[in-house]
Amino acid sequence: MKEQKGIWLKYGFYVAGLCCLAVFILVRFQKIPEAVIVDGIEDHGELYHMSYIDLFGEKIEDKRHYRKRMYDPNRDINKAEILTFGDSFFEFPLEKPFSLRLEDTLNRKVYHANSYYIMEYLDTVNYTKDKPKVLILDVVERYFPYLFSTKHERFLDQNRVRRNDLYSKIFLEDAEKKYTAFLQKSIFSHYLYSRVNTIKFNTLGYLPSVIPKYNRDPLIVFHIESVNDEVTSVYYEWEDDEIEDMCDNILILKDRLKEKYNLELLLMPMPNPYTIYHNLIGDSRYNDLLPRLYKGLEKRGVWHIALMAPFLAADEMVYHRTDTHWNKKGQDIALKLVMKELASFDTRN
């Protein structure tokens, strides 16, 4: 009897071992093969992907297909009339990219690069100084200190060159992330994973630490970076000197771009969703980073777009409720303001 019992457990280990070997190999592909990914899983906000809780699972149409056009290898930066740089707001896959909307509305060539490191990028792609052109830089509010504060500046991971040889495949650097993605998205485990998280949320109020705050009506979820104890948070108490320092560094960037490339910097500080909607969850604390930045930029004559007031005044939500990025309405407001600024630039030049 014991022998038989032993056999099923032993074979159980063999089967488990083989399954794990399959997973071990699968996560080492650049992208986990589509055959094992749940259909339509990408059509959700990123905050759903950080929790897999049903309440946050509203569908958002995936507009990833625009990327092909945005990153068409035939695009030439030197032929573009407008350049856009920045973070994921210009990159966001669930809306038509801002650079393409700008291009289609103005009927002028727009070149986009998903990078904060403008000078290095322009050097690398051999951008040649030409007639005055506009470079629009989007920086989300919470990353200003990382980019422009002398005290807090840090090298962002995104520019690091990653190895892609057999060695790095075996000793996968971000193995845990990839296994988690597999667990969350694969047809073998997604259903169970999202069920467990939803039950935990409904019964125990469980929330993953990356989304510590949310509001049910109207539904909106917030990311931790805006509400933690770090410098990215809306609670961080900025000294006037620190704000001045950031504005000075932005001015240096503006002057360098003008001098070296004849590029006119148009800075678009992107408010955190929490900055706009913190009142919804009864939290009145806000460190006034954006208004203070606008003031500092104004003082230094740095051309910028102040989105905070129009976003606050908007009659609809300007962010996706389950994502940290803007929705079409938010883009529309920004687009309108950018167009106005570009028109004034054209008249000036």
Binding site: F13, A16, G17, L18, C20, L21, V23, F24
Partner: peptide, 8 residues
């Protein structure tokens, strides 16, 4: 993932 592979 590692452990069942090793045991098997």
């Amino acid at each position: 993932v590692f452990f069942p592979m090793v045991i098997a």
